[in-house]
Amino acid sequence: MSSVLEVRQLSKSYGRTDAVDSLNMDLVEHTIYGLLGRNGAGKTTFLNMITGGIFPDGGEITVHGSPLKKGDVPAQTCYIREKNFYPGNARVRDVLQMASAFHPDWDAKFASKLLGTFKLNPRKKMRHLSRGMESMVGNLIGLASRAPLTIFDEPVLGLDVLMRERFYRTLIEDYAEHPRTILLSTHLIDEIATVVEQVFIMESGSILMQEEVEQIRERAHLVSGLGAVLDTFVQGRRVIHGERYGNAGMAIVYGDLTENDRKIAESQGLTVEGVPLQKFFAYLIEEGQTDE
C-alpha cells in the first residue's frame, strides 16, 4: 500500500515547552487510524502542522508523495478542526456549498443524505447551532469530501451517545464503499476501538505507542493475585501499571502471554484478564512508558 503521509523528526515548541518532539509517523492508504492522547498532548499542534496551519520548527512532512513546504497546504486533504471557523451568519447549506469548492471528490448527494442522518437543518445559521450540531456539520464535510486523507480532530465533541454512534457507523459504512485514509484524533479510545485499525498514542509531543487495536487487546493483560507471586510472574515483562492492596496486588502487563504462561499464572493462583482499552490508555499515559 502506498504512503499517504510521512512525518520525520517533526518538532514544534512554544517558548520552552515542546509541543511536538521529534515525532515520526507513517500513514498508508485505505486505513483508519486513531490518534489518542490527553488534552495538551500535542495532537492538535501536530495536526495543524501536517495540514499546513502552523509551521514546524524542524522535521519533514510528505503528503501524497509531495514534501509540504512552509506556507503550503497539502493537496487532497480534508482537515476537520475541533473548533470550526465557518462564518457564524452562514447557513448550514451555504457552508456545505462553500466546502464543496475545496474538495474535488465532494459527493453532493451523500452530503444531502447526511443532513437527514445527522438531523441538521440546512436553513439554520451556524451561530444558532449547538456545539454538537457544529461538530456534526464538520463531520458531514469530512465524510462528504471523500478526500484521500481525511483528518478529524475530536469529531464527537458535544455529541450525545446516539449521535456518536451514528457518526461512527456512517463513517465505517462509507469507508467500506469508498476506502481512504482517515485519521481520528480523540481521547476516547473505547469509542473508536471498533472503528480504527491502528492507533498512535501520543503524550508530551511524542508517540508513546503505535499498535493495531487488536494487538493491544491481545497483548494488554490485567494480572492480579498475591504480591510476591505477582512480582515473580511479571519480572522481565513490560509492566504498564501496578497496584498493591496489602498482600495482594495487580499489574497491567503489556506483551504476549503464551498458553504456557497462562497455565503457570493459573497454577500460582494468579488471575489473567483483558484490560478495557480506555483503562490501558490511561495507565500507559500515566506511567509515561515508551514503546521501544
Binding site: 497546504v73 482537515y79 478542526r81 471557523f85 465557518y86 469548492a101 475545496f102
Partner: peptide, 12 residues
C-alpha cells in the same frame, strides 16, 4: 483568513 484556511484554501 481563518475561515478560508479552515475550508482548505491555500495562502497563495
Amino acid at each position: 483568513f481563518r475561515p478560508m484556511m479552515n475550508f482548505g484554501d491555500s495562502r497563495r
